[in-house]
Design a protein around this nucleic acid. Structure first.
Length: 251
DNA sequence: CATGTCGGCAC
DNA sequence: GTGCCGACATG
């Protein structure tokens, strides 16, 4: 649907789309983490509607090793509002009550890892225009549309398979397409664990920073553990515990 | 073919 | 009202 051409729709997209994300440089997260080297890609596409948001959301930590940003959708659609840093208003004076809703909506759910991001997208057309869709982005930029997809990815490391489009929409002349429901001997190769089980650190200190949000940081030898490594640990941990659980249940 | 977007239903 | 996922559109 590029270019809304509804005869009676001047496309009054605004209000919700334009949301100045309050960001307070004073509001640190306890001087830990936030190594985010490059912040960018907040605003790009802009169907030239309106919402020429002068404010560039200074959040969104991007991992250097990954594809970045999605190209563009179908033209329309407001700019994706990315919420990474906790937009807490310790010094934020004004807080319009209505925006509060939006803010609250962008608060990170507890099940979402700290390193992930939430993308808020406002529907700009259609019957459901004005609705807000929430997407979740992992540190490498992969996009997920629901908690379930995120969970699935967290646990298996495989992105959930998007609908392969099937049936009438794809008249492939062969209604009798073979559909191997399960490949018995084909094991999906998931990423290898990046954890040195042979040489684990002798001691790890975990520091909890409470402001503005609960954040745990690991230290080995008094040195901060890279956030990426923490993630590797988490992945390894999950993998191991999950394996154990499987063993147990199959016993 | 991949990915974004909207419809619409199930909580 | 919100979250979620299928269906569709589009580059």
């Amino acid at each position: 649907m590029s270019e809304n051409e509804s005869p009676s729709s001047p496309v009054p997209t605004q209000d919700l789309a334009a949301n100045p994300i309050p960001f307070d440089p004073n509001n640190d997260i306890g001087d830990v983490i936030l190594p985010d080297p490059l912040l960018d890609s907040g605003s790009f596409i802009d169907a030239g509607q309106n919402e020429a948001e002068p404010v560039t959301p200074p959040n969104e930590q991007h991992q250097p090793t990954s594809e970045d940003e999605q190209g563009s959708g179908s033209g329309i659609a407001a700019e994706p509002i990315s919420v990474a840093a906790p937009a807490d208003g310790s010094a934020g004076s004004t807080r319009p009550p209505m925006k509060r809703n939006l803010e609250e909506m962008s608060k990170r759910p507890s099940w979402l890892p700290e390193t992930w991001t939430i993308d808020l997208r406002v529907r700009s057309s259609g019957a459901t225009a004005g609705s807000i869709d929430r997407y979740y982005r992992d540190p490498s930029g992969k996009k997920f549309r629901s908690k379930n997809e995120v969970m699935h990815f967290l646990e298996t490391g495989n992105k959930i398979k998007r609908k392969p489009n099937d049936g009438e929409a794809t008249p492939s002349k062969s209604p009798e397409s073979k559909k191997p429901k399960k490949s018995a001997s084909k094991r999906k190769k998931s990423e290898a664990l990046k954890f040195d089980f042979e040489n684990p650190p002798s001691a790890v200190s975990w520091i909890c920073t409470n402001a503005p949000e609960e954040t745990w940081t690991a230290k080995v030898d008094n040195k901060r553990v890279a956030e990426s490594r923490q993630r590797e640990w988490a992945t390894a941990f999950q993998h191991v515990t999950q394996s154990k659980a499987n063993e147990r249940s199959s016993n």
